[in-house]
Nucleic acid binder design. Structure first.
Ligand SMILES: [Mn+2]
Ligand SMILES: [Mn+2]
Ligand SMILES: [Mn+2]
Ligand SMILES: [Mn+2]
Lengths: 223, 223
DNA sequence: TCGTAGTATAAGGTATACCTTATACCTCTA
DNA sequence: TAGAGGTATAAGGTATACCTTATACTACGA
C-alpha cells in the first residue's frame, strides 16, 4: 500500500469509518461535526477523497468507504490502538489521554515500526479501551458487544469497550472506574430517558443514558 | 514552551542547528541544500522564522539561532534521539534506518510522552549512533570527540559517534562494522586527501577521508 | 403538498509551503 | 578592481486545507 496521504486525509477517512461509512452512507454534516470544520469544507474534502478513490458519494445521502478507504481507515485505527497499548502498558501514561496522544503518532508511523511494535507488545488484540485492533490491510471493521444503555433492569454484564473513544468520556468513565473488565448490574433505569443506576464493586453509580450508550458490554447469563 | 509549530518549521530549525547555527551564521544556501528546497524557498522560510523569533538573519552571511530557536532545535533533537533508542533497543529495528523513522515520530510527540519515554528507556544519554541526547529545553548543543579523519597515522581511537547522521552513511558504516565503541588504528593515510587504512577487530578497512570526517572518536593515549 | 432542515455548489479569501523566472545586490578571489 | 558565485527580493504560480457568504437543490415530516 502506498500511504503517502496527508494527516488530514487520514483523519477524514478514519472519521468516516468510525461513523459507520463501511456499512451505511454517512451524511457529510456528520463528518464536518466530527472533524470540527464547516460543512462546505467537509464537502470539498469529500470531493477530493472521492477522486482519490477512498469514498463514494451518494448525493444527499452521504459517503461510503471504498475498499481502499476501508483499508486505509483500518490501518490507521490499527496504528492508533497499538500506540495506545504502548503508551498505557509500557509508558504508564494516562488511560484516557492515550487516545489523543496516539492520534498524533498514528500518522507518523512507518509500516516496519507497526510490525515491530506488534511483536514488542505481544500481538495485542484490543486497545486499552477494549476496542479491537484490526489486522494489517483488513477489510472488516470489527464490532462486538451490546450497549449498556440497552441492558434490561436487573441484568448484569461485563464491560467490553468504550466506543467511540473521546477524552472527555474516557476521563469521566475512568474516574468512575467503569473500565473494560468491570462487572455491572442495572439496578434501576429511570423513565423518560433518565439515568441508569448501576451496581458495581459493592458501589452504586448513576450514569446518564447517553454515556451508557457508549459502553459496550457482554451480557452475563446468570445474574 | 508552546510547541504549536509545524513539522516544516521544526525541520528547518533543526537543520540550522545541525549546520552550526548556534555558533556561526549558516548560509541560507546550506539550509536549502539540507532541506532539499530552492534557495528562494529557504529564504522565504528564513524570513518567517525570523519574524517568529527563532533565527536572526545576518545579511549575506547567514542565519543564527536565537535562544528560542536553539531550545526548539534541542527539544526536537531530544525527541528524535530518544525515539532512536526505543526503535533500536526495544523494537530491534535497523540501526541505520532508525534515524529517519525517528525523524517522523519526533514531530508527533507530546511532552508527556517524551518524559515517559525517558523513564522507560532508563534516561539514556546518547542515541544509538553515539550522539548526545540534550536535556529538556537545553540551551547548549553538546559536541564531543575528534574527527577520525584527523587522527595521525599509527594512532588509535575508540569510535564515539557518527555525525551528522544520514541513512546512506549510517548504512555503509554499519555494514563495515564501524560502530560506536569500536577501536580503530590508523595504519596508513594516503596522500592527496586519499583514503585511510584502518585496523580494527583483526581486520583492515579502507575508508574515504570524507566518510572518516563524519566519525567522531576518542583518542586512546597508549597505542 | 408545502416548508424547512440539511445538503450541494459557486465564488472569493486566507495561510502555509513549495515552485520558476528575473533582477539586483554583495563579497571574495583572482 | 573586475567579475563570478552566492545571496536577496520581486512577481506570479501551484497545491492543500481551511474559511465566509450566497444560492440552489432535495428529502422528509407535518
Ligand atoms: Mn490522528
Ligand atoms: Mn483505544
Ligand atoms: Mn523530522
Ligand atoms: Mn542517532
Amino acid at each position: 500500500m502506498s500511504m503517502n496521504s496527508s494527516e488530514s486525509v487520514e483523519m477524514y477517512v478514519k472519521s468516516v469509518a468510525e461513523l459507520g461509512g463501511d456499512r451505511q452512507p454517512v451524511p457529510i454534516g456528520r463528518v464536518a461535526e466530527r472533524m470540527d470544520v464547516t460543512p462546505v469544507s467537509a464537502n470539498e474534502m469529500m470531493k477530493r477523497l472521492g477522486s482519490q478513490g477512498y469514498i463514494e458519494h451518494q448525493m444527499y445521502k452521504g459517503v461510503l468507504l471504498t475498499r481502499a478507504g476501508l483499508t486505509m481507515a483500518n490501518n490507521i485505527i490499527r496504528r492508533q490502538r497499538l500506540w495506545e497499548c504502548f503508551l498505557v502498558d509500557k509508558l504508564k501514561l494516562d488511560w484516557a489521554r492515550s487516545h489523543e496522544l496516539a492520534c498524533d503518532l498514528e500518522h507518523a508511523t512507518a509500516e516496519e515500526v507497526v510490525e515491530a511494535l506488534v511483536s514488542y507488545l505481544g500481538s495485542p488484540t484490543h486497545c486499552p479501551h477494549g476496542n479491537p485492533i484490526p489486522e494489517a490491510d483488513s477489510q472488516e471493521l470489527l464490532e462486538t458487544g451490546v450497549l449498556l444503555s440497552e441492558l434490561a433492569t436487573g441484568h448484569s454484564g461485563r464491560i467490553l469497550a468504550i466506543r467511540p473513544e473521546s477524552h472527555e468520556v474516557l476521563a469521566y468513565l475512568h474516574h468512575r472506574m467503569l473500565l473494560p473488565g468491570t462487572e455491572v448490574t442495572v439496578v434501576e433505569a429511570a423513565p423518560l430517558q433518565g439515568p441508569l443506576t448501576l451496581h458495581m464493586n459493592d458501589q452504586e453509580v448513576v450514569l446518564g443514558l447517553n454515556l451508557a450508550s457508549l459502553v459496550l458490554i457482554e451480557e452475563l447469563c446468570c445474574p
